[in-house]
Design a protein around this nucleic acid. Sequence first.
DNA 1: AAAAAAT
Length: 697
Amino acid sequence: MPKNTKRQGGRPARNFDPSYAKGGSKGGPARAGSAKPGSRSAGHRGYRPEETDAPRKERWSRDERVASGRTPHRGDRDGRDAGRAGERPARRDDRDGRPARSDRGDRFDRSDRSDRTPRAYGRDDRAPRLEFDRGDRPARPHYREDRPARSFDRDDRAPRRDRDERPARSYDRNDRPARSFDRDDRAPRRDRDERPARSYERNDRADRPARPARAFDRDDRAPRRFERDDRGPRRFDREDRAPRREFDRPGFNESARRASDFYPAKDRARHAPADDVVLERLEAEAIQADEVDGVTFADLGLGGNIVRALRDLGAESPFPIQAATIPVVLEGRDVLGRGRTGSGKTIAFGAPTVERLMQLWTESGPSAGSGTGRVKRQMGRKPRALILAPTRELALQIDRTVQPIAQSVGLFTTQIYGGVPQGRQVGALQRGVDIVIGTPGRIEDLIEQRRLDLSEVVVTVVDEADHMCDLGFLEPVQRILRRTAEGGQKLLFSATLDSGVAELVEEFLVEPAVHEVAGEDQASSTIEHRVFIIENREKRDIVAQLANREGKTLVFSRTRAFAEDLTEHLEDYGIRAVALHGDLNQSRRTRNLQQLTSGRVNVLVATDVAARGIHVDDIDLVIQADAPDEYKTYLHRAGRTGRAGKEGRVVTLIPGNRQRRMTGLLGRAEIDVAFERVALGDDPFAADESAGEQLAV
DNA sequence: AAAAAAT
């Protein structure tokens, strides 16, 4: 059955015409991973035997332990005081981590294994490593017999050493048989033919049945017009849900899933510079801020326990976005919610999700309702709600809000994300969990391992939904949503929710209600924006100068490497700073973020991992050391300050030749700023303050 | 380019 035939009057669902969704992607292989450090092995010109003067024996035995075992690293960035006190010469090594390890590893390696490694074997008559490294040479019998298990080698050594020190492993690229199954032998894709290809469309689900024309597919109105006043009902009505049922469930195509290996994105689009197009705004039911006056959470339909839990969290009365969405979620409808950064979206979906689970619980079973508004935990019960987030930190943070709310009625939550051992997470699932909060990767992993079963999930939230529809995120999210219960409620939230979520809406939402808060434009925001035109070579110093102040500062960098670099530079400048990016292990990520939250440091230098959703109280300055490419990224980064009505400043540093691009971006973000030329030594905020004083006179 | 799984 057609999905959308009911809509009368030729103005159907303009919100989600997928043809307005993302632009194309360019082909070509993508390199994964970050830049590798240069080789520092003894034979390399970059090698510096700088530790020859260090006391050797003890050092190696200690490093050996670190290198080979699980000994926690010492003297990392955060332990720098200890490092300094002890005048440990290796401090700089700890900074950039990898080279240091390879140095140590190299020596350790030679002293420890020289008499048994293949390297020694090969040394006699030919270039040592190359041959050894080949995976595909004819067998060398005695060598193989000696030490059949190659993996042993790996485990025994310091991590990464071999990658760092030896020349490229030839078998990595050349000797590998062509993986024909990767690309060539696939079954032809049928649905490609049925309609124009969409770049973000992948084939890892069953083909959709040829679907009947939907009115809004062909609608030939001008794209991206923002029309508000001339329309009737403001809802995206979709009449029937039938089509989704048939292909959804069984349609999870296992073999296709397999074929997409661990790095599925590799052969696909390489960093296609984001189109940064303002997608069509979703038509929404707008709530007026003053409509909320005097309304309580209880009025919205939340139970007493939950209201108390909210009060404990500091939420006395609902924010507008909460007032708008909570009742609708409680009705059981699918919801799209847009509220600007820091406007309280987590509670807007978290609280009603919990309440809704309670309602369903009471409706559904005899086992239900002890009458106290609480439920009893039942071993091994399957999760009934799922909240998806794009980063681990955000998942953690959401849990910190949702967990107490859930707990107030006797429900359990657990975090499911990567970078930490899965044991605890699995254990929690086995004991029985009601709400799963996590990131896509680990969730899929546990599903595959059959340790996580989403089949009873009746409420699913996608936070930062537009971001979750970006290339690389969309497919895992789709696969996960397909695992949830048929007909389950779906909630999509973001500060920048736009028709980029069309793909999800189309497949998973039924007659979603769209809600936003009226008058939430940038002009009414509490954030002050500045753009400084600077010389690139002065950038690091200017950042240091700007960050050298009281109050919490968040600095954004485009790459992980530059984030590290900047952090180090700030430290050299005498400013305590920590970094947050994907090259750090999870415990350090968590700890570094926590250091900013606790105020132990005032400056955090982060990649866009911190751009969305992360809430730290009282960040009053955001510095964009690298300007963002997308207006949405700008808005989200900026939104780390000025939260819940507080004041904040955002400074963006750009080189002179970026002015035009920046102007365009700011235009799309609907922010009005004049650019200022700033050189090292200027105090751009001094004028600001004196101007303020003058005005005050 | 960043993010998201582990060995």
